[in-house]
Design a protein around this nucleic acid. Structure first.
Lengths: 332, 332
DNA sequence: TTGAAAGCGCTAACAT
DNA sequence: ATGTTAGCGCTTTCAA
C-alpha cells in the first residue's frame, strides 16, 4: 500500500512515463493501456505523491489560508466561503495558523519561503505597510481578507463606518451616554472602530467620555471573546450613572455583556458586531459583515490569478449593515 | 526572492551540502561558515522548499487534521487542543476538510495516497469498520477523534451515556414527556444518543413516544445547526400536550429551540450537548464533551508515535458531564 | 502511442 | 569541516 509510480509501471508492464500520462489525463495513451494502468493503480491503491508532483511540476494545486487563530466565529464564516469556492476546483485547501508566540511577519516569511502552495489567502492578518511590502517581495500570488495594502489584492470591510453606523443609530434614538466595549488595544480593527465611534460622537457635538470606552481583561483572541464582554460590562455597570446604550466590537462580546447585565437584572440597549449565525436566534442587533462573501470572492480572485504573471489587482471594500433585532431597543 | 539552495551556496561560496547542513543544524559546520551562510540566506530570504525536503527526507514534518466541515463549534474546540499540542513542536498543522459531495472514504483514500503528512488526525469522521480497515491499510500513522475502530488509536466520548445522563436528569426530576431534538438520521453520534435516550426511558418503565423525537428540516452540518433546533421545537410545540422537557443533540440546536419557545412565550426545561464556550453565558445546561482535551491528547499520541514502527495503540473513551445551569429548571 | 532520460530542490551517505 | 554524488517520486521533453 506504499507504492510508487515504478511499482505501477512494472506491474502494468509499461514505462513510468505512461503511468504518469494516464494520471495526468494525457490524450496520448491508447485506451487499452489506460485501462490497464488504471486497474493496476486501483488495485494497488496508488495515488501520485503530492510532494513529488509539486516538485516536478513546480505547481502544487494547493491554496493555503493563513489565519491567526482558528477559534473565532468570524473565520468560520470566511472559511465557509473559501471552501465553497475551492470545492468547485481541483485545488486542495490547507489551512495554516500563525501562533501568537512569534511575530506574524516572521512566521509568514518562513511560510512563504517554503512554497507549500500556489496561492495564499491571508485572513485577518494585520501587518504594517512595510511588513506587507516584505511579504509581497516573495512574489507569490496572494489576497488579503480583512486587511488592506495598496499593492495587493484585498477584500476588506470598513471598520470605521461600522462603528459609526452603530453609534449613530443610538444617537438618533436619543441616547447620549453611549458606551463602547472594545477589544485589545493593539488590535487594528478595534482601533479603527474606536475612531469611528469617537468621530461620530464628536460630529454630533458630544465629548467622548474615556470612561465609557472599556475592555475586559481576558485578552485571548485579541479580546474578542465572551469573557471579555462580560468583564467589560461589569466595569460599565460599576459606574454611576450607567451608560444608556452600548456598542460592542463583536457578537461574542455582546453575549458576554448581556450575561453580565442579566445578573443585575438590567438590559441596556446593545449592538454587536459581525452577525454570526446564532445572533439571529438570540435576537442580537448587530453590524453585519459579509464574511462568507469575502471568503468566496477572495478565493475566486486568487484562483483566477494563479498562473497569470501580471494579473491586475482587485481591491474591494464593504460597508457593514446594521441589522436590527431586539437587543437594540430599550425594552428588550 | 525565489532562490534555491544552489543560489545560496554560490553566493556564500560553499557547497550546497554545507547550506543544507546549516539549515539542518548539523554540528559539523564551522561557526564562521555557518554565520556566512545564515547571513546570505537571510539577505536573500531563503527557506528550504517544503516539498523538496519532504521528498528527500521521506518525512514532512506536517500533521494533517481531517475534518468534515469546519463550520462547527465542536471542531473549533478540538482544533484548539490540536493547535496547542502542535505548537510545542516543530511540526506544521495542515487542515483538510472532506466535502459532502463525495463519499468520505473515497476522499480519504485519495488523500492518504498523496502522502502530504507524517500523521493524520481524523476528527469526527465516521466510517464503518470495513472502511476504516481499508484506510488502515495505507499504514500511515493516525488517530481518530470522536469515532472508534478497534485497530486504531482513538479518543471518543460515549454518546449513549451522554444522552442517558441528560434524560435521566429529567426523569429524576419528575418529568415524563421528555422530547428529543435529534439531528440527521444517518449521523452516527445522533443514532447512538437516540439509543441512549430510548433505553433510559425504557429502563424507567416508560414507553418512548416516537412523536417526541424530532429533527428540523435544515440538514447542513448533519442537522447540528441553529435553524434545525428552531424548526424541531416548532414541531414539538404543535403537539398537545406540549412536552415537559427537552434534550438536544447540540448546544447550537438548543439555542434555536429556545428561540422558538420564546416566540411563544414558553420556556420548557432544556439541556444542550457539547458545552460550547458561550453556553455558560446564556445559562445553557448541557452535556459537556472534553473537546479540547481530546484534541490535545490525541495529537500528543500521534506525535509520539510518528517514527516508531510498532507503536502500541491507545484508545480512550470519555463520559460526558452534565453541566447544570439555568435552562434545565422549570422556571428558567 | 510509447520509452529513455534529464531535471525539480533538497538530504544524506560517502569521500576527502 | 567541507564537497561530491546518488537518490527521493514524480513530470516532461525528446526520440523512436
Amino acid at each position: 500500500m506504499s507504492n510508487t509510480i515504478y511499482d505501477i509501471a512494472r506491474q502494468a508492464g509499461v514505462s513510468i512515463a505512461t503511468v504518469s500520462r494516464v494520471f495526468n489525463e494525457s490524450p496520448n495513451v491508447s485506451s487499452k493501456t489506460r485501462k490497464k494502468v488504471q486497474n493496476v493503480a486501483k488495485e494497488m491503491g496508488y495515488q501520485p505523491q503530492g510532494m513529488a508532483q509539486g516538485l516536478a511540476r513546480r505547481k502544487k494545486n494547493v491554496i493555503m489560508a493563513v489565519v491567526p487563530l482558528l477559534s473565532n466565529y468570524f473565520f468560520l464564516q470566511v472559511l465557509n466561503g473559501i471552501q465553497d469556492a475551492i470545492s468547485e476546483t481541483n485545488f486542495e485547501l490547507h489551512i495554516y495558523n500563525v501562533k501568537s508566540s512569534e511575530k506574524p511577519v516572521d512566521q509568514l516569511k518562513r511560510l512563504l519561503g517554503r512554497r507549500w502552495a500556489d496561492g495564499y489567502l491571508f485572513v485577518s492578518i494585520h501587518l504594517s505597510d512595510s511588513e506587507w511590502k516584505m511579504i509581497s517581495q516573495f512574489d507569490q500570488q496572494m489576497v488579503l481578507i480583512d486587511d488592506a495594502y495598496s499593492a495587493c489584492n484585498y477584500f476588506q470591510v470598513n471598520n470605521k463606518q461600522g462603528a459609526r453606523k452603530a453609534t449613530r443609530y443610538f444617537l438618533e434614538h436619543g441616547f447620549k451616554r453611549i458606551a463602547l466595549i472594545t477589544a485589545k488595544e493593539e488590535s487594528i480593527p478595534a482601533a479603527k472602530r474606536r475612531q469611528g465611534y469617537i468621530q461620530t460622537l464628536t460630529d454630533w457635538g458630544l465629548t467622548p467620555d474615556e470612561s465609557l470606552i472599556v475592555s475586559g481583561d481576558t485578552q485571548y483572541r485579541d479580546g474578542f471573546n465572551e469573557e471579555n464582554g462580560y468583564e467589560a460590562m461589569q466595569k460599565l455597570l460599576e459606574q454611576t450613572p450607567n451608560p444608556e446604550a452600548v456598542v460592542c466590537m463583536s457578537d461574542i462580546q455582546a453575549i458576554g455583556a448581556i450575561s453580565a447585565m442579566k445578573e443585575q437584572n438590567l438590559s441596556l440597549p446593545i449592538i454587536g458586531y459581525d452577525d454570526i449565525q446564532l445572533a439571529k436566534y438570540i435576537g442580537l442587533s448587530t453590524m453585519r459583515q459579509p464574511m462568507y462573501k469575502m471568503g468566496k470572492e477572495g478565493t475566486n480572485v486568487l484562483l483566477d490569478q494563479i498562473g497569470k504573471d501580471q494579473p491586475k489587482v482587485v481591491q474591494k471594500e464593504y460597508i457593514p449593515d446594521l441589522i436590527l433585532r431586539s437587543t437594540s431597543s430599550q425594552q428588550n
